[in-house]
Design a protein around this nucleic acid. Structure first.
Length: 413
DNA sequence: TCTGGGGTCCTAGGACCC
DNA sequence: TCTGGGGTCCTAGGACCC
């Protein structure tokens, strides 16, 4: 049996944890640049605030209803997520941390799954303050279904026998099935397939032909045949990307270079943290796709590197070179994407006799990491990243670093 | 003025090799 | 009328996830 634990309205719950005065009140959390809504407390959902709604369009409504608004604060959420996962790990030998707020784990060999899940749930809530729901079923796809049902029940739902499962699927909307996205849902709805139960009654061959093996796996999982195993060890990453919209549009190449340098440096840091090196660096510029009238331009360039690297100096240099190659005057750029592909572990690097590895550059990178870890991200930068970063993120409603910065720690009394 | 960011998997088609 | 066959690798694009 598989269990899925999912934190309720995770980001909103994290913000509320440190502001108990907000209990019972509506909360929303905004995306980077305070762009749109990415998390809502139940009270905010009840007000009819849609997921993904652009902030500037609903600002008045939020003010009228006294909704508490927060900029997203991933350091805080990451820290609280780790606490939840640590607690869950005490209850099962096999766990898969699936995302920042979700965790699959095996309950095979356990008895009285309802009572055990209730205990897990109350322990996590007690120890972390984050409310969670648990769904249990014979496959991952069914555990997802159970989890949705748990949210509407008392926080735990176990689906075990065939009759119980049929019942649960009978009125389960097709578009809510894990793995069926907008495109497939639209198509299936047109064919009159509206529920999970109708979907699994389609012939398997049809599903396989029209929705590839991915669809066939979901189909089998809905019949209780497990096809998606627990992933207890993470596969090594294949790509890594730093991409972020600017606080305001950029037209000048000098500012684009700064931003690209800055993103490349951040990317290099992420690579080093995961002990990976990249063979190819890609740079992409994007104009604002929502600006109907403005001219659009989405150039990109992949730069093969002479040797796999993760050092900031090399990657920043390449990113700037990329921007210079693809930049064209006359556009209002909204975003730059720096992507590293063909990643390999640091330990597997084949030395190139001619270019080799520069220990000096590696030492610079290491010093950067250590200084920034101690004094805070971005304290020491490469000069081309610029000092006055006019394009940097807008985060007008950022909460304090309650758990990750001594200066922001909660004071009692 | 303002509309997120970071990933994975699968397939099809082209290039290339023997 | 005829123009091999089979394999691998790479890339682009689509679909999906949280």
């Amino acid at each position: 049996m598989f269990a899925l634990a999912d934190c309720n309205n995770f980001y909103a719950s994290c913000e509320r944890l440190f502001k108990p005065t907000l209990i019972g009140l509506p909360i929303v959390v905004l995306s980077n640049n305070d762009g749109c809504v990415i998390a809502r407390s139940n009270e905010a959902k009840e007000l009819g605030i849609a997921m993904g709604a652009p902030y500037f369009q609903i600002r008045e409504k939020l003010e009228q209803n006294n909704v508490a608004v927060f900029s997203s604060h991933y350091t805080l959420y990451g820290d609280l997520s780790a606490r939840v996962m640590t607690n869950l790990a005490r209850f099962s030998p096999d766990i898969e941390v699936y995302s920042i707020d979700e965790c699959f784990f095996s309950l095979s060999g356990f008895s009285d799954l309802k009572a055990y899940s209730d205990k897990i749930r109350s322990t996590v809530i007690q120890n972390t303050g984050i409310p969670i729901s648990i769904g249990v079923a014979p496959t991952k796809v069914l555990a997802k279904v159970a989890n949705k049902k748990a949210k509407k029940a008392d926080g735990v739902m176990v689906l075990e026998g065939p009759a119980e499962i049929s019942d649960a699927l009978a009125n389960f909307p097709i578009e809510d099935i894990w793995g069926i996205g907008r495109a497939h849902a639209t198509r299936l709805l047109k064919l009159g397939i509206e529920t999970a139960d109708q979907f699994r009654k389609l012939p398997e061959e049809w599903v396989r032909r029209e929705m590839t093996v991915v669809g066939a796996r979901i189909w089998n999982e809905l019949w209780g045949m497990s096809c998606i195993p627990l992933k207890m060890v993470l596969d090594p990453k294949k790509n890594m990307c730093t991409s972020r919209a600017f606080g305001k549009p950029i037209e000048e190449i000098s500012e684009l270079e700064q931003a690209a340098a800055s993103y490349a440096s951040r990317l290099a840091g992420k690579l080093r943290r995961e002990k990976l090196c990249t063979n190819v660096l890609s740079v992409k510029l994007l104009t604002n796709r929502f600006g109907d009238s403005a001219a659009q331009y989405f150039p990109s360039l992949s730069i093969p590197l002479d040797y796999p690297t993760s050092n900031s100096v090399d990657l920043v240099k390449m990113a700037i070179r990329g921007v210079r190659r693809i930049y064209r005057r006359g556009y209002r750029y909204q975003k730059v994407e720096i992507m590293a592909t063909q990643l390999i572990p640091e330990s597997e690097i084949q030395m190139n006799v001619f270019t080799g590895h520069s220990t000096k550059k590696d030492k610079i990178s290491k010093a950067l990491d250590e200084l920034n870890k101690y004094y805070g991200a971005g304290t020491v930068r490469i000069a081309s990243e610029g000092i006055k970063q006019k394009w940097s993120l807008r985060r007008d409603f950022l909460s304090p670093h309650y758990t990750t910065d001594w200066n922001d720690i909660i004071k009692v009394g």
